[in-house]
Amino acid sequence: MFSLIVEWMTPTLVDTLAGPFPELVPEPLTTATAVLLWVVLGLTVLSIALTVLTPNPRKFAERSERDAFLDANRPSDREYRFNLILMVLGGATAVLAWPTFIEVLRETFPMVVELGGAVPTVWTLGNVAIFVVFVLGVAAYTRGLDRLVIGGMREFLYRYHADDWDE
């Protein structure tokens, strides 16, 4: 989504800054925007890699301790259903609100870039509410998806180690 927003907003940024900063637009500015995308991607991957490569602080002396920990951290069927519903409703909400979100963003971006820009006409109470609903929908979708993936991994670990306990 970040990549799409940057891609769609770059022409607006180029048009807005072409007058005051002709030496920066378009080539250095578009290159800087592309570099920004790669930096964000790199920082995201680095952050995830550092988290994944960090040693697990949990050590279990007894199998019963490990069993109790894994059992306590598995999602219940109710949590799976809730997160699935959260993901579906959040995703559907975000998809439905996407056109208005982009319209508001496109109209707002030049105002942010230009000093003293006029308030966009697209800023109606309904459109701003849809903008907020989009952000909340994306947050709900990512939260539900994250909990389903992490819950699935915890369930896998529980079942995988359950086989160890039979030995």
Rank of each mutant, 00 (worst) to 15 (best):
P57C: 10
V14R: 10
V45S: 04
T44F: 04
L41C: 03
L24H: 11
T12V: 09
F60T: 04
V35I: 14
M9I: 03
P57E: 06
T30R: 15
L41G: 05
K59E: 10
E23K: 13
G19D: 15
L17G: 02
L13M: 08
L17R: 10
A49S: 12
P20A: 15
L50I: 08
L50G: 14
T30E: 15
S47L: 07
L37Q: 08
L17I: 05
V39H: 00
L29M: 10
G42M: 03
T54A: 15
V40F: 01
T16R: 11
L53V: 06
V40H: 01
P28G: 07
S3W: 00
F21L: 15
F2M: 14
I48R: 03
L29R: 01
A49Q: 11
S3Q: 02
V25F: 06
W8F: 05
T12Y: 04
T16K: 12
E7F: 09
I48W: 07
P55H: 02
A34Y: 00
L24N: 13
T12A: 13
A34H: 01
A49W: 05
R58E: 04
P26G: 06
V14C: 15
K59D: 09
R58M: 07
T33C: 14
S47M: 04
E27R: 15
E7H: 11
L13Q: 02
P55I: 08
E23M: 14
M9N: 09
A18L: 08
E7C: 06
T44A: 06
L43K: 05
T30F: 01
L37P: 01
R58L: 13
P20L: 12
T51E: 13
V14S: 12
P20Y: 09
G42N: 03
M9R: 07
I48S: 05
A49I: 07
D15H: 13
L13D: 04
T33E: 06
P28H: 03
I48F: 09
E27M: 07
P26V: 04
I48Q: 07
T31S: 09
S47Y: 02
A32T: 11
P20E: 12
T51G: 14
T10H: 03
F2P: 10
T44R: 05
